[in-house]
Every structure is written in C-alpha cells, then in structure tokens.
C-alpha cells in the first residue's frame, strides 16, 4: 500500500466520515423514531438516540386532590402531561403517551410518597415493543400483509429465477437467430418503470382473475427480474466450462440431472445474487402493490397506509418499517454467504 501524505489522509478521513455520517445519522433518527413513545415523537429538536426510560415529575395538588404529572424530556425541560387521581386514567395515559406499562394501583402507590415529601421525579422503563404491538393493533391486516409479502416474494423468486436462469442458459450456451436482439430487449424491459406496467397489467390481471392476488403481483415484480436474472446468470454460465457438463453426460446423467447437479450448483452465486434482487424488488415495492391489490396488501403497503391513515402516529409506521426491514436483512445476510462463494474455476 502506498503511504499517504497528510493532506491525502485528511481528505480521505473527511470523505469517509461524511459517507459514514450520511448512512448512520438517518438510521439513528429512524431507530429513535421507531422506539419513540407518543410524547417523544413530537419533541423538537429530536435526539437521534433511542431512549429506554421515561422520567416524570409528579406534584400533588391538594386543592383538587389530584396528581399533576409533568413529562421531563432529555434536556430536563418539563411539559404538562396529565392531572388526575384516577389510577385507570393514569395507567392508560402512561401506556399511550409514555409506552410505560404500569397498572393504576402501582402508579398510585409510587406517587403516594409525593403527598408527604413534596414534588418528586420518577423514572420508568419504557416497553420497547409498544410501537410494534400498536402497529399490529391499528393496522388490522398487518399479520396478513406479512404473510402476503412473503408469498409474493417467494413467487417472484420462483418465477424470475426459473425463467431467468433458463433464458440465461440459452443465451450463454446456444446460438440462435435473434439472440442479440433478445438480450438487448431484456435490458429495455428493465428500463420501464413498474408503475407504467402496473396499470395495463391490472386490466390483464382482472381478466385472468389474478387481480388482488400475490401471484398477480409476483408476475409484475418478475418482469424486470427475469431480465436481470438472465443477464447475471448468462455471464456465469458462459464461464462454466462445457466439458464439465459433457463429463456428466458421459458418466451417466441425462440433460436435466446434469443441469441440476453440475450447472446449477456452479451458478449458485449468480442465483443467490439474482434472488437477492428479486427479494428486494418484491419486498420493498409499495406503488405497484397499491395499484394491483385491493383487500390484500403487502407489508410495505401496510406500512405506507399506516402513515397515510394517521399522520399523528409516525412512530407506529416507523416500527412497521423495522418489521419490514428485518426479513430483508436476514435474507440478505443468508444469501450473501453464497454470493461470495465462488467455486475456483478448473484451470491449470
């Protein structure tokens, strides 16, 4: 490695830091939002750090015989929250606005001390799953949407990998008329915005009775991914020495066995990369799902609708987004292992 001068080092450090900040800061804000309680979400300016507890300042108001609860934010400022002596009201308020799960009796018991010793601050642990629970509660179809998303993804991977890899194999191995045109055409398919295809496709899907089904959605998602898969796989298939397949034929396999046992395993990295793209296309899309579904949303759409329905509860949509991210993360990390696993080519 070449040694860098001070100036070069400085510039590189600055660039890297900028890139890192550009990635990390939004993620931190996003996570902080997703775990915010109903009060924190309205704070301004926001702190991009997840809080795990809530501090309240409690006074006893002898005149009305009630507790005055004030929310203490992370800068120590107090905001009026609730005046009440009812355990039920307090408990509900704490759950809804502070994400703190305490029964009325427990709260009243804690606050009893304020009557004798004067105003006091209390710190309670937040229930970190509150937003997630609420997301599923307010988004009535969230569980179904999760299942729908998984189904749509599986269909998409299945369709685009099966057709795409076969197409890629044909492009790589055989000479036929119009081969060049086909491979260019595949790229053109990728240029179309899926929204543009969604609307005419909706009409076709209605005719085929596939509107509002995951198969119909998967067909749409597969269109660009078949093209992509055949591009990725054909380049890998070209690199696989033909003699490897011929050896398999001579040593007792038929064409299909050869493809399954020799060609496909060797093309596994390409398949893994393609399936990753297919997964992400299908998993993250909202706009096509919005057009092509009616009663059966995908999870991404459900999250979108959670924002759309109720702009005041942004933290629940953020929590939904986290639910949306987790499977994508898991899938990507599992598949990444295979993408990097290239079999050393057999050469001298």
């Amino acid at each position: 490695m070449k040694k860098l001068s001070v100036l070069q080092k400085t510039i590189i450090t600055l660039v890297m830091t900028t890139v890192l900040l550009a990635v990390i800061v939004p993620i931190m804000f996003f996570l902080a939002n997703a775990f915010s309680n109903g009060t924190e979400i309205y704070e301004y300016p926001k702190t991009p750090i997840i809080s795990f507890s809530v501090t309240v300042y409690v006074e006893y108001n002898e005149l009305n015989n009630e507790y005055t609860v004030k929310y203490v934010n992370r800068r120590g400022e107090q905001q009026n929250a609730i005046n009440s002596n009812s355990g039920l009201l307090l408990s509900n308020y704490f759950e809804q606005y502070f994400s703190v799960y305490k029964t009325g009796d427990e709260l009243l018991e804690d606050f009893e001390i304020v009557k004798t010793e004067g105003p006091k601050e209390f710190t309670y642990a937040k229930n970190m799953f509150h937003n997630f629970k609420t997301f599923f509660y307010i988004t009535s179809k969230a569980e179904e949407a999760l299942v729908n998303s998984i189904v749509a993804v599986l269909f998409t991977i299945l369709i685009s990998l099966t057709l795409g890899s076969m197409c890629g194999y044909a492009i790589a191995r055989f000479r036929f008329r119009g081969k060049d045109q086909i491979s260019v055409f595949l790229l053109i398919v990728r240029m179309f915005p899926t929204v543009g295809i969604s609307i005419p496709l909706a009409v076709i899907l209605i005719r085929f009775n596939l509107f509002d089904t995951m198969l119909g959605l998967a067909i749409l998602y597969s269109l660009p991914n078949i093209a992509l898969t055949s591009w990725i796989t054909s380049s890998i298939f070209v690199g696989i020495n033909r003699e490897l397949e011929e050896a398999s034929l001579v040593f007792g396999a038929n064409g299909f066995q050869t493809f399954m046992k020799i060609t496909l395993p060797m093309a596994l990295p390409a398949m893994a990369a393609s399936s990753m793209y297919a997964f992400l296309t299908a998993w993250n899309d909202t706009i096509s799902a919005l057009i092509l579904t009616n009663d059966h949303p995908t999870l991404a759409l459900a999250v979108y609708q959670a924002i759309g329905d109720n702009t005041t509860n942004l933290q629940y949509a953020a929590a939904g987004s986290i639910i949306l991210i987790i499977p994508a993360l898991i899938f990507t990390f599992v598949v990444r292992k295979y993408v990097n696993q290239m079999w050393g080519s057999v050469s001298v």
Binding site: E243, L244, S248, L268, W343, V346
Partner: peptide, 8 residues
C-alpha cells in the same frame, strides 16, 4: 483435456 473435474 480440461480434466472436467467438478469443482463443487
């Protein structure tokens, strides 16, 4: 000629 030994 290339041995055609399956690498996987």
């Amino acid at each position: 000629q290339s041995y055609a030994v399956w690498p996987h």
